[in-house]
Simulated scan of single mutants.
Amino acid sequence: MNASDEYPRQSSTRTKAIPRTIAAIIDALPPARREEFHAAVSRAQQGPELDAALMTWWLEAMFEMVPGRDQRLDDTVAGVGLVELEPETEER
């Protein structure tokens, strides 16, 4: 069994991106993560620091929308179902 057997690619349907706004990110996060997001955004200074916090949490919100995330993270930490990547070539 390889990783593609365990985690089959979903059909051509894609997860719709949520807007990169504080309100949309809060709505997309599970209740248990919202306080952590609010704290990170509240501490960040306007500019690159706030932009980075919003980008990080926007990605977290997007990842939360994909079913089975917790199991995939647990498997990754345990080294289960990993796929070896092709070595990168110098040609681009």
Rank of each mutant, 00 (worst) to 15 (best):
L59T: 14
D74R: 15
I22Q: 14
S42T: 12
I26R: 15
T21N: 07
A3W: 01
T76C: 10
W57F: 11
Y7S: 00
I25M: 10
N2D: 06
G79H: 04
T56G: 01
P19V: 00
R34K: 14
A24C: 04
P87D: 15
L85D: 04
Q45C: 03
P67C: 03
A61F: 02
E6L: 03
A39V: 14
P31Y: 02
A53H: 02
F63L: 12
G79T: 05
A44D: 12
L82E: 04
A32L: 08
T13L: 08
A39K: 11
E60D: 05
D75F: 01
F37E: 02
G68K: 01
E60H: 09
T13N: 11
A24T: 04
D74K: 10
L54M: 15
E64S: 13
A28P: 05
D75V: 01
D51E: 14
K16M: 07
R69Y: 13
A32H: 09
R34S: 02
I25K: 08
D27R: 09
E36T: 07
P87C: 08
S42H: 08
R72C: 04
V83R: 06
A24F: 07
A39T: 13
R20L: 07
R14Y: 04
D75W: 02
L50P: 03
E6M: 02
I18Y: 06
Q46K: 15
A24N: 05
R33T: 01
P19Y: 02
R14F: 08
M62F: 04
E88P: 01
V41M: 09
P31T: 11
P30A: 12
L29K: 04
T13H: 06
L29S: 07
S12Q: 04
W57P: 01
R72L: 05
A52R: 15
P8D: 02
T21E: 11
D70P: 00
A44S: 14
A3R: 01
K16N: 08
F63W: 09
R34V: 08
G79S: 03
F37G: 04
A78T: 06
L54K: 11
E64K: 00
V77A: 12
A17F: 05
P31H: 05
